[in-house]
Computed example of a mutant assay.
Amino acid sequence: MPRDDRHPSRRAFLDVTGGALAAGLITGCSSDSPQPDRPVPSTAATPKPVPAAGRHQAGVTLPRSAQRNLLALVADLGPEVAPGPLLAELGEAIRTLTAGSDPRLLGLSPGDLTVTVGVGPRLVRTAGAALPGATDLPRFSRERIASRARGGDLLLQICADDAPVVPVAAAALLAQAGDRVRERWRQSGRRGTDVSVAKGLTAPRNLLGFIDGIVGPHTTAEQERDLWLAGPPEVAGGTLAVLRRMELDLTRFAALSVAEQEAVFGRRRASGVPLSGGTPASAPELGAKTPDGRYLVPVDAHVRRANPTAVGVGHMLRRSYSTDEPAPGLLFISFQNDLRTFTATLTRMDTSDALLPFTTTTAGASFLILPGFDRQHPLGSTLFG
């Protein structure tokens, strides 16, 4: 049975956590290991906790540098399930999990755990057909998406630097939801080591070896303009998310020379600098040419085809997570306050982007990321209160 057509079992969860425990037991069996009653203090820096409450949900711009590990879990609500009470319960569970006071963490420290909740177009339409997020994501070329891997009612984006925290938090949230939700698909991913691209700005390398996520709304002013929804009041403080899981043809891409790979992206592989020059954070000079009249940034380079100014849209906050199961690839997530920012960009890329032939999209969905919440204003209460 295809992966997207079955639900993760309790055994699958126990296999994961049991494997982690077994690994810990194996590494603790050397003759130099400490005695069980003499624990060794950890020398690793403990990630700073990220508050769950606030104007915006955590996990989008907080923490500033995204955590290493992510699980995107997409589910449907039962036909008779009221979204409001379910979301309020999930919000309270998120608060206790991130605070470290939930026994379902099994003694793990939550560290920088964040859980970001979104609702799909079907649920948004029940609150208002004209609201942002009510429109389904259109279909694009180079897609091979099974019906269960397209769309969904509920998104749980769970992130943490400490890998075991992620599936444990997911199990707690699914237990909280119970039989009110039915899982559609899930995808785990990891981010590479961050590379400094400008003062106060870092980005990781993707599975193709290039620095990913350099361009985006990084300042507060840019985020207010292009990222956060200003209204209507039901969604103010939220944003729109697009998820796309893609398989990558690593073998064919690796067969290219470094110069050919750089022409696909329009950037230097080692540094991230645009082929037109400057620094990694410099905007590519799309009109710059060689003395013989060739564009320094090729006409089909990814940075040209996806350039916000050329497309005529705002910036999207982009995150890419490397995956190796069900196939080597990446999970692409973008956040923006207008779905057209994504759809117009991908439509332009569809016509001639040198990167797309190396990709096949196998899952896709869009969600309204709900506004922030606190104890007085439960998660989802502005939309489903």
Rank of each mutant, 00 (worst) to 15 (best):
Phe13His: 04
Phe13Ala: 14
Ala20Val: 15
Thr27Phe: 03
Gln35Ala: 15
Gln35Ile: 09
Val40Trp: 02
Pro49Val: 14
Ala53Asn: 06
Gly54Pro: 07
His56Asp: 10
Gln57Gly: 10
Gln67Asp: 00
Asn69Arg: 05
Ala75Glu: 11
Asp76Val: 02
Pro79Ile: 12
Pro83Met: 14
Leu87Cys: 06
Glu89Phe: 02
Leu90Cys: 05
Gly91Tyr: 06
Glu92Phe: 05
Leu97Glu: 05
Thr98Ile: 10
Gly111Tyr: 07
Leu113Thr: 06
Val115Pro: 02
Val119Leu: 05
Val119Gly: 03
Leu123Trp: 02
Ala127His: 02
Ala129Ile: 04
Leu131Met: 04
Pro132Lys: 14
Thr135Phe: 02
Ser147Ala: 15
Leu155Asp: 12
Ile158Gly: 05
Asp162Ile: 04
Val165Cys: 09
Val166Lys: 06
Pro167Asn: 11
Ala170Cys: 11
Ala171His: 12
Leu174Gln: 10
Arg182Ile: 07
Arg184Tyr: 07
Arg191Met: 00
Ala198Gln: 06
Asn206Thr: 01
Leu207Val: 11
Gly209Leu: 06
Phe210Lys: 00
Phe210Ala: 00
Pro217Cys: 09
Glu222Asp: 15
Glu222Pro: 09
Arg225Cys: 13
Arg225Ala: 15
Asp226Gly: 09
Leu227Ile: 15
Gly237Cys: 10
Gly237Trp: 03
Ala241Arg: 07
Glu247Ser: 13
Asp249Arg: 04
Thr251Asp: 10
Ala255Gln: 08
Val258Arg: 03
Ala259Tyr: 07
Gln261Val: 01
Arg268Thr: 12
Arg268Pro: 01
Arg269Tyr: 00
Gly272Met: 04
Ser282Met: 07
Glu285Met: 11
Lys289Ser: 11
Asp292Val: 14
Asp292Phe: 09
Val297Asp: 00
His302Arg: 09
Pro308Ile: 13
Val313Asp: 10
Ala327Gly: 02
Ser334Cys: 05
Gln336Phe: 06
Asn337Phe: 06
Leu346Gln: 15
Met349Phe: 05
Met349Thr: 05
Ser352Thr: 08
Asp353Gln: 09
Leu355Ser: 02
Leu368Gly: 00
His377Trp: 08
His377Leu: 14
Ser381Met: 11
Leu383Met: 13
